[in-house]
Design a protein around this nucleic acid. Structure first.
Lengths: 151, 151
DNA sequence: GATGAAAACACACCGTA
DNA sequence: TACGGTGTGTTTTCATC
């Protein structure tokens, strides 16, 4: 586990919100020089605190107006098929996230589609036919808010 | 809705995976000059295809080893208190994502905690006491895979 | 697509505690 | 040893042609 001081925490929170901020700009905000800030960021990367930098796409603007969360329970107790299911579901283009979870369901999927008819197609022809798929529960996304998190 | 050509799609997919790639490097991969690539990226941003660039933090390395998905159903006449609930839940530091959904639950929350005792504290003292909170269902995250998505 | 100025990055070296 | 500052070459960004 990585030890962080107060400045590290502020850096991570600031960059988690907007990773376009330059080391120089961040340094000015926190009273550090550009190289000092840059070294801190590099140290955090090397320590593994940072997994990567990603573009967040606007799915709606790109024609994917429907996002659905699916809870999937696998059929039989033979959980040798866990990996098979995971591999098969990961190959479906419309699936954005595959979460293996413990609880009422075995997997949680985030699925996008152009519209509801398109989602029905994905559900019936791709998801329901997966090896081992049993019960499926669906929640349609209305709105979403991502927060900075603890730290 | 934004129209994309094949190169735009490849740019977005590449940057969604790793936003550290420079316009020059992407241009070389796709056979475009650095300024041409840079202009495409800017055009995609201005068109709204890109919501932003974010750092992905390694919650586990930062001491948050437990991630739990909660499905929350509001109490019977809780519909007037949707906003109240949303505001209150967004103020809990351990809550990373608040999704307002349609279906069996009203909200889906992504919650992180240092360990299971810590999660129990969050659940009992912060979540269960929220205004309007009714049924709560939990799934503990075992592993997660984020995929590029359709396009 | 090419060129070039401005900005940001990335590193070396030095100072302090 | 650990951290920050200064100085500087390199790379990237971004505007103009």
């Amino acid at each position: 586990m990585i030890e962080l001081d107060e400045i590290d925490r502020r850096i991570l929170l600031a960059l988690a919100r907007d990773a376009t901020q330059s080391a120089g700009a961040l340094g000015r905000r926190f009273g550090l020089s550009q190289p000092a800030m840059w070294r801190r960021i590099r140290r955090l990367q090397e320590a593994g605190a940072i997994k990567g930098r990603r573009l967040r796409l606007n799915a709606e603007a790109l024609g994917f107006g429907v996002t659905v969360f699916l809870g999937v329970k696998l059929g039989r107790k033979g959980r040798a098929s866990l990996s098979d299911f995971e591999r098969a579901v990961s190959a479906i283009p419309e699936v954005q996230t595959v979460e293996h979870v413990l609880g009422l369901y075995d997997f949680r999927l985030r699925v996008v589609a152009r519209d509801l008819p398109d989602f029905e197609r994905v559900l019936r022809r791709r998801i329901m036919t997966l090896p081992g798929a049993g019960e499926v529960e669906a929640n349609v996304l209305l709105s979403e808010e991502r927060l900075p998190g603890p730290l």
